[in-house]
Amino acid sequence: MKIIVNGETHDVAVAPDMPLLWVLRDELKLTGTKYGCGIAQCGACTVHIDGVAVRSCQMPIGDLEGEVTTIEGLGQPETLHAVQEAWIKHQVAQCGYCQSGQIMAAASFLDTNPDPNDEDIDRAMSANLCRCGTYPRIREAVKTAASSLRGA
């Protein structure tokens, strides 16, 4: 079946119930998206489908409708997404394992809510777990990214 990931069309020969996460990592070798729990409890595997955050471990490839964006397609080293820039500015990452999911969740959230308050941020980001406890820095980075995206 054909899927579009980061603007490129791929033809993958896999079972239709294979989760998108498996396709991304094992078939397309896009390993920036992480496997955490496999049951939508941690958020590490968050990608965008038509711009909306989705836990890729939950999406059977046969039910996928829309274009997928992974952390590899959100920005490039020379043209980072505003969320990625903010992550560097605030030195959010510690071990880093959850961070691609955190960044994808934040980018999708700011697309629909460009001027969030702390409560909004906590509601949007609480389903992305970080065992290093970088939550205060995540919240500050989301605010910085929001400000940057608004052109402030």
Partner: peptide
């Protein structure tokens, strides 16, 4: 949709 869509996890 204001913060995190139900569909983020419940596909």
């Amino acid at each position: 949709s204001e913060t995190l869509a139900c569909q983020a996890c419940h596909v």
